[in-house]
Nucleic acid binder design. Structure first.
Lengths: 212, 212
DNA sequence: GTCTATACTTCGATAGAC
DNA sequence: GTCTATCGAAGTATAGAC
């Protein structure tokens, strides 16, 4: 059973990810994507049909994978607090593995989903729903403080995406000697978000790690 | 002393704000901005020189105003905890007054400051620096837990900008019956961020409001 | 300061050979 | 499946009259 050649589409998707992250949907140039993928433009259209379809194919893959990882954690057999800790770690890990993804997320929020179809939107909605399910579970079991499930999602995904996507502008600001941000590492920031969410959700201070 | 006519430039800036927020720098169309401002394109170029200069003029004004409001709070005579509470309220208030601003902020982070000059970058950097100064002050006075000042800034600005900018996509998701987010209000979300940051910064649980 | 008409460029997409 | 060449639309910017 001969498998279809996957190398060309995959290289195009990888190139598109970089281009869309750096320039946004409107700013991305199909010629540049093709060149970066070392494929000619006609090939790109042959595989994906249009710029918009290429964009959606990219986002579907990204959100599907991220959603699956989070859902696995939600299904796992751990106390809610541990699930939340791991969810933050895994989501941040996914965004760091795909360094172009944070910028695309921020842009897509700002864009209001203008270039997305129903399917892609549905895959995107898995993320907040999964985090919300962990929050609801913890609240019902009485181990979490009563916090709005969707607010919890925003409180963790926004800082992570914002922090990771802001690396270029922080470098820019540093080069101009404007000093805002200082020295930080992604590891430290993810730990900070975990700690923040723990403090946000904890019921009694006895459960808090270290010194509150 | 005759003052120059400010109505045309102001209308152009207002129209540009909407266009850049909805479509981003690359997606924005100068024709559309001119039409929305009810001036012809030549007028726009007469006042602002180019699309990029118009964009920068808009961002300078926005960040200058926002920065001034935050700095006034930092200078005020209040305990650090009250300053932080008010800083969040005022920053969120500013973003809500200028409903197009959150989307522009997210886009500019993703863009890596590509269309900004040194001046605009400097005005932008005032925001994290001012929040950081409040955190450092509170930590030195011993009323705040030792949290990274820049992390604190990201932890409050990112959720607020993300939440406010996500209104269109949340509406979109709701219309497709995908249910993620549910019923929320900006007021409730801002209160949530205040509470989150309080819990993040508080030293002893006795200082925590309500039941922790 | 304000307008119309247009020059010049870039971009998404496709035709058609192999 | 892969390529070259190119079309037509859309975009930024400006010339030049008033």
């Amino acid at each position: 059973m001969p498998r279809r050649p996957r190398v060309s589409p995959d290289r195009i998707l990888a190139a598109a990810a970089l281009e869309f992250a750096e320039r946004g949907f409107a700013g991305a140039r199909v010629d540049r994507i093709a060149r970066r993928a070392r494929v000619n433009k006609a090939m790109l259209y042959y595989h994906f049909g249009s710029k918009a379809m290429l964009y959606r194919a990219l986002l579907r893959g990204l959100f599907a994978q991220a959603g699956q990882r989070l859902e696995a954690i939600a299904r796992s057999d751990q106390p809610p607090g541990a699930k939340m800790d791991e969810a933050i770690l895994v989501l941040a890990g996914f965004l760091r593995e795909h360094a172009f993804f944070p910028a695309i997320m921020l842009r897509e929020i700002a864009e209001g989903g203008a270039h997305l179809d129903r399917d892609t939107l549905a895959l995107m909605a898995v993320l907040p729903r999964t985090i919300a399910s962990i929050v609801v579970d913890g609240t019902e079991r009485g181990v979490f403080h009563n916090v709005h499930p969707f607010f919890t999602y925003v409180s963790l995904v926004a800082p992570i995406a914002f922090y990771l996507a802001s690396a270029p502008i922080r470098t820019e600001v540093l080069q101009h000697h404007l000093r805002a941000g200082g020295d930080t590492t992604p590891d430290a920031f993810v730990a900070h978000v975990q700690e923040t969410v723990r403090r946000m959700l904890v019921r009694n201070s006895a459960d808090l790690p270290r010194s509150l």
